[in-house]
Amino acid sequence: MLECKLQEPKVFRSVVEAMSEHIKECNFEFTREGLKMQALDSSHIAFTFVTLSATWWNEYRCDDEALLLGVNLETLLKILKCGPDNSLLALSYENDDDEVSELKVKFEVDRGEKKDVAEFALKLTHIDPMEEEVPELTWTNELEMPTQELFRIARDISLFSEIMVLEFDKDKLRISCSSKESTADYLVHPFEDSTNASNSVRMNIEAPFKVSLTTHYVLSFAKNKNINERVVIKMIDAETPLMFSFSMKEGSGICYYIAGRLTD
């Protein structure tokens, strides 16, 4: 049996919305430790990894050691959009029901002694488990900046070029693009905002390097403003995939791995 409840359905909706940017369907792996979702986009360019630990939920119970539920993200997102922000979201699954395999989604709104309830059932599908595993990487370079700022730059660059070049230096990040018609250059410097720490830019770059990324992937990662207003980019060098990370409470979060382009 599985049952988990959340008082902020908006946050879970944001997670599913972020995943559905790249992925049509994926396995939800429920264990006693929490929910994990990992999937590749159809082009196998970006790897998305989500952890929602048991303590991240307001209530969490999974009796099985591992429960793999194949979920169509587009349909789940449609259901989640039906839930009022002030409702209690409950996900449940009964694995003794052999006839229909479905994830139940319920929204409850307190009305004094009574509750308004909306219930949905999402039919599950079989998805072969992913064989790929994220390798352990020792990140040597790290940059942390406002998600909104990365979003703004990626959105602007997407108007000009499908490719963006990131040059990480010890004291600055240059993001640029060029096309036949124009070029664009952004310089981002580390700084501490003493009145609002969320505006700060922090970088710890041991060895400067340059990498080209496909713009629309960076833009879609940066849409995670609702997950965390800060994005952390972890790197090693131009030959190793970069990780874009948006953390949440209780060791939960969403992160993406993407490799740099070969040559442009």
């Binding site: 082009s43 496909t214 382009r261 070969l262």
Partner: peptide, 14 residues
């Protein structure tokens, strides 16, 4: 897009 390598090829190499 020939210049954008798949992430799986990296994972298998690492």
């Amino acid at each position: 897009d020939a210049n954008q390598p798949s992430i799986t090829s990296f994972f298998s190499k690492l």
